[in-house]
């Protein structure tokens, strides 16, 4: 659970935005779409792990079984 995750996700977002712009300008709309999709999946993978950590913490702390 570290703060670096926020910067990581923001970096992925900025990178995907830039790549998207470049690909759209060069006329490769489908590839731009694919890049956007890949960015979403990568970020979602990172976020899901953290959400599961939070759920496990709350579950053990409040004895929710």
């Amino acid at each position: 659970m570290d703060v670096n995750m926020i910067f990581k996700i923001a970096a992925v977002g900025i990178l995907v935005a830039v790549l998207n712009q470049v690909l759209v300008r060069t006329g490769r709309e489908e590839q731009a779409m694919m890049v956007a999709l890949a960015g979403i999946v990568i970020v979602l993978m990172m976020v899901i792990k953290m959400i599961s950590d939070l759920f496990n913490t709350v579950r053990t702390m409040f004895q929710l079984y």
Binding site: M1, D2, V3, M5, I6, I9, A10, V12, G13, V16, A17, N20, Q21, A36, G39, I40, V43, L44, M46, V47, M50, I51, D53, L54
Partner: peptide, 17 residues
């Protein structure tokens, strides 16, 4: 402005931390 879905993720992770 450019990627609203990733902005949402940033806010989710901040809340989580």
């Amino acid at each position: 402005q450019h990627r609203p879905e990733i902005a949402l993720h940033v806010s989710v992770v901040t809340g989580l931390i």
